[in-house]
Design a protein around this nucleic acid. Structure first.
Length: 696
DNA sequence: CATTTATAAATTTTT
DNA sequence: TTTATAAATG
């Protein structure tokens, strides 16, 4: 929703006797907000006021006396849920909205399982494995099967986790899933099944869950548990955002929560389905009326966000789409002076450096014209597409924040420190032991295995035993083992003194002893140590260690320390984001960069029709984020880092999705400057410079 | 025999 | 920048 309409709505509320949440809604939105009883499916095109409708509905429900503690709002990210509840509050729901259950499927599952996990065999204090840990655990199990030694190729741990996750989330048999999505491993179906059952057993044994387990256990709570009846009746109202990006498992959970669809409200747009790789399926939307035969369907089709020329481009991109209900976005904006609308620009640049320059120039230009940095965004297909731009932004002192790509939590040193906390939380957390022991010099896989045998997990007192009765290790590792023993001993002391409120103190103790090790192990020690301090600050804001760890895994902060220039000098920064992470966002100015074939659509997805279609929708999502100004840029030439030292360039075509947009863009061609040429050829690369000059 | 070091290879999107 | 495998080392 756009802020202007929002302000208008509040003004209206004062003028009329309408409730605040009713003002300024169009008829379809009003129906969605006021509908009661049977299930409701809202098909909401991009920019059609979906967020506003959801927020208004929450406000309306609370205004009508619904118990906020019995309202569940499932969103795609923590950010989205916070934002929606904040708006609900402004729309008259007052502070009650803070008590609404809002969050992602995974976060809500965690919250419920902390309370009711025992009913499905999950002991208190379970720890959640993030992607990397789950992957490593899969690797451990895989190694134990000795499959690598047979001389035959066997799927790697990453592939195994992919297969596993897809089977769980799509709820389809292993053999079929492998045949459809991993045909090159079908010969090993039986062995894969064996590894998976061992993986599942190991997690259960060590009181570990992965992301998928959170959903599996939640569904189990609703269907096969002593508390199923209680939990099915737990919520009076269920609202689901981004329904097109839910998978079958999530659809099952929804049905478990509202078996007859009573007071169930889901919103989605099949044209924006971009999580197929995670087994999400827009079929959940088409299937909704089958699951809930009495459901009502409302379509929101007026666009309150973008100018018509921007929507024309988006519409054109979608014309070739398969399997999407045809849509034609029309603008409802009336604040625009016809002659004053900025045409979408398709910008051809010689190479990445020029692209970065062009974007920086335009960003600053718009800023001069009064559009703050935070109202501008640069979007791209994959995390590293912004690398060149980030350098340039840094050079020009333009602050930015980047969403997507490598996260704070994924940095090795952060994981190292968290592993200690996880041990304190769950002494049977095998992966945490692996990580902590691996930190010690002179300790490798073999010593780790021996130590773990000595500890004979699972055992809730493993840490205490490790401290009191340390295992024997090779002489070279003895000193470091002693350090580890002392550190864990300190932690136990801290925990014993202050109880759960001492997470920050624990981190302090760990940093004091192990910090030098971390410093020694990695480069760029200063910024890494700063990260650890930051971690400590974050921990002091969490009431318990358990909550701190869970929230970090489920809702990891996106890329801290990514601010360029003097941070916090002013509160304004440019947004850089993968298109996936930009879902639901909107900005006055949007740049979609690297829009070359091979980037969008990504080469990786060209093997299947569905893959290609998802890329098209992804591009569509990127374009429809723009309110007033849209730039699509593509470099004619860019690096492909095949090998670390390779300096290979690829000649690019504009994205094939741009074909139907002929005449809808204003074409811009940036000529290469001498500086570009010098910069872009960091070696004696005469041929490429000569080729480039052909295009000058 | 276990661990470290050298060498080569591979890199989407996220909870 | 990290990650699996092979050779070298203690």
């Amino acid at each position: 929703m756009n802020e202007r309409v929002f302000v208008y709505a509040r003004r209206m509320a004062v003028a009329d006797v309408l409730a605040p949440w009713e003002a300024g809604l169009n008829p379809a939105q009003t129906e969605a907000v006021n509908h009661d009883g049977d299930a409701l499916l809202v098909i909401a095109g991009a920019g059609s006021g979906k967020t506003r409708t959801l927020a208004s509905r929450v406000a309306r429900l609370l205004g009508d006396g619904a118990d906020p503690d019995r309202v569940l709002l499932l969103t795609f990210s923590r950010r989205a849920s916070r934002e929606m509840l904040r708006r609900a509050e402004h729309l008259g729901a007052s502070r009650a909205s803070a008590r609404v259950w809002g969050g992602t499927f995974h976060a809500i599952a965690n919250r419920l399982l902390r309370r009711h996990g025992a009913a499905v065999g999950l002991a208190e204090g379970f720890t959640i494995l993030d992607q990397g840990d789950a992957c490593d655990l899969m690797g451990v199990v895989r190694a134990e099967f000795g499959l690598a030694e047979r001389g035959r190729r066997f799927p790697k741990k990453d592939t195994l986790l992919d297969i596993y996750s897809r089977v769980v989330n799509s709820q389809r048999p292993l053999a079929i899933t492998m045949k459809e999505h991993f045909p090159w491993c079908t010969a090993d179906v039986d062995e894969v099944a064996g590894v998976f059952s061992a993986y599942v057993a190991r997690k259960r044994d060590r009181n570990l869950t992965d992301y998928d387990d959170l959903l599996l256990y939640w569904r189990a709570l609703l269907t096969d548990s002593p508390v199923a009846d209680v939990l099915r009746a737990r919520f009076d109202h269920v609202l689901v955002d981004e329904y097109q990006d839910t998978n079958l498992l999530q659809a099952d959970i929804i049905q478990g929560l509202a078996p007859r669809g009573r007071n169930l409200f889901v919103v989605g747009d099949d044209a924006q389905a971009i999580y197929g790789f995670r087994a999400a399926t827009a079929a959940n939307m088409t299937d909704f009326p089958n699951r809930f035969p009495d459901c009502r369907v409302v379509t929101l089709d007026w666009n309150y966000r973008s100018t018509q020329p921007i929507l024309d481009v988006a519409n054109a991109v979608l014309t070739g789409a398969r399997g999407v209900f045809p849509k034609e976005l029309r603008t409802a904006r009336d604040d625009l002076v016809p002659g004053n609308i900025s045409p979408p620009r398709l910008v051809r640049v010689p190479e990445e450096g020029a692209e970065a320059n062009y974007v920086c120039d335009r960003v600053l230009e718009h800023r001069e014209h009064g559009i703050a940095l935070r109202d501008q965004a640069v979007l791209f297909r994959t995390g590293h597409h912004s690398a060149r731009l980030e350098v340039e932004l840094g050079r020009r002192n333009i602050p930015f924040i980047k969403y997507g790509g490598l996260k704070f939590l994924e940095a090795a040193h952060v994981k190292d420190l968290l592993a200690f906390l996880r041990l304190l939380e769950n002494p049977s957390d095998e992966m945490a032991w692996h990580r902590v022991l691996g930190l010690l010099e002179g300790v490798g896989p073999a010593t780790t295995r021996r130590v773990l045998e000595h500890l004979s997990l699972p055992d809730p007192t493993a840490v205490r035993r490790f401290v009191d009765d340390p295992p024997g290790v090779p002489p070279r590792a003895a000193a470091h083992l002693e350090l580890l023993r002392a550190t864990l001993g300190d932690c136990l002391d801290v925990a014993g003194q202050n109880g759960d409120a001492s997470t920050a103190a624990e981190i302090e103790a760990i940093r004091a002893r192990v910090g030098p090790l971390v410093e020694h192990k990695y480069r760029a020690a200063e910024s890494r140590m700063a990260d650890l301090e930051q971690l400590q600050a974050m921990a002091s804001a969490s009431p318990t260690r358990s909550q701190f760890l869970s929230e970090l895994v489920i809702d990891s902060p996106s890329a801290t320390g990514d601010l360029a220039g003097p941070p916090h000098l002013d509160d304004d920064w440019l947004v850089l984001s993968t298109i996936h992470s930009a879902k639901g966002g909107e900005w006055d100015v949007v740049f979609v960069i690297h829009a070359a074939d091979g980037n969008i659509p990504s080469d990786m997805s060209l093997s299947s029709r569905e893959g290609l279609e998802e890329e098209r929708r992804l591009f569509y999502v990127g374009l429809t984020r723009a309110r007033d100004h849209l730039y699509v840029t593509y470099p004619l030439r860019f690096y492909v880092r095949r090998h670390a030292l390779d300096d290979l360039h690829t000649w690019a075509q504009p994205s094939r999705f741009l074909n139907p947009t002929a005449g809808l863009f204003e074409d811009v061609t940036v000529e290469p400057t001498a500086a570009d040429l010098a910069e872009s050829a960091p070696g004696p690369d005469k041929v490429t410079s000569q080729l480039t000059s052909l295009w000058a």
